[in-house]
């Protein structure tokens, strides 16, 4: 477990966001320290994905602040936030189906004006992490299997050599074995490259086992926070997310 340093890489302070009149985030506080994996768990509609998207500038925050590496990014346009090397693998993978795997990966590097050497190094890293993609480079994204598409979505995000990687439900719709491979890859990235990761998940068990720390979100508010192991032991977590709500 990483030591809680004084300056978190990402600090969110009483963040509020809304879709029209419906308030999705009602004052969220969250810290992500450098080199940490943080899991954000919660039920459908709790505001997890909204939080991730608000960090990226769409929807805009109504109130509160988002600090990345000490810098206020609350009002920056999305493409400038990406340029600070925050990358995102959106929910449902959303790869470009008619473009080849190689082109999909290049797209990830395009947003951050990385040079040729950076691109080559990024590609090398992605392909050692997901050797399956290497065999598929010339193939169209749309012809990949679900697991391979998720690998591609993460690989695409990694191509910008991010300092913070945000993953929205990477295990969505994947077979348990494939989901485990994805989680293993995230762990490898964190251990070997020291990559900071925010992972939004419904699969609380997997996510909390993987994460150093976790936050539980209910109706636009953070209700619980703690280390992954602590949260896994909490009876309310076990009841709500791990045992199908049997004792709730």
């Amino acid at each position: 477990m990483t030591a809680t340093s004084a300056s978190p890489l990402l600090a969110i302070r009483s963040l509020r966001a809304a879709y029209g009149k419906i308030e999705a985030l009602k004052g969220v506080d969250l810290d992500i320290n450098p080199g940490e994996i943080v899991a954000l768990i919660g039920a459908n509609g709790a505001g997890k994905s909204t939080l991730m998207m608000t960090i990226f500038g769409k929807p805009r925050a109504r109130a509160g602040r988002i600090l990345f590496d000490g810098r206020d990014i609350t009002d920056l346009p999305t493409h400038q936030i990406a340029r600070l090397r925050i990358a995102q693998a959106p929910e449902g993978r959303r790869i470009f189906p008619r473009m080849s795997v190689a082109e999909n990966l290049q797209m990830g590097a395009d947003a951050t004006d990385s040079g040729e050497a950076d691109r080559a190094a990024g590609l090398e890293r992605v392909l050692t992490l997901f050797p399956r993609l290497k065999e598929r480079m010339a193939q169209r994204g749309g012809t990949l299997s679900g697991g391979e598409q998720q690998m591609l979505a993460i690989g695409r995000a990694l191509m910008s050599r991010p300092r913070l990687l945000m993953l929205d439900e990477p295990s969505l719709g994947l077979a348990p074995l494939i989901a485990r491979q994805i989680f293993d890859a995230i762990r490898t990235l964190n251990r070997q490259d020291g990559l900071t990761v925010l992972i939004v998940e419904q699969n609380a068990n997997h996510a909390l086992r993987l994460a150093h720390r976790g936050y539980v979100m209910v109706n636009g508010l953070i209700t619980l926070a703690g280390t992954g192991a602590e949260l896994l032991q909490r009876p309310e977590i076990r009841a709500a997310y791990l045992e199908g709500g049997r004792r709730a």
Binding site: I81, A82, P90, R94, F96, M107, D110
Partner: peptide, 23 residues
């Protein structure tokens, strides 16, 4: 060039483009 790739990516999936930080 990146701009042409961005056009094609835009055709494929606008949400994904935004997630990648494409203007």
């Amino acid at each position: 060039l990146p701009i042409g790739r961005a056009w094609e990516a835009l055709r494929e999936d606008e949400v994904a483009c935004r997630a990648l930080g494409i203007n």
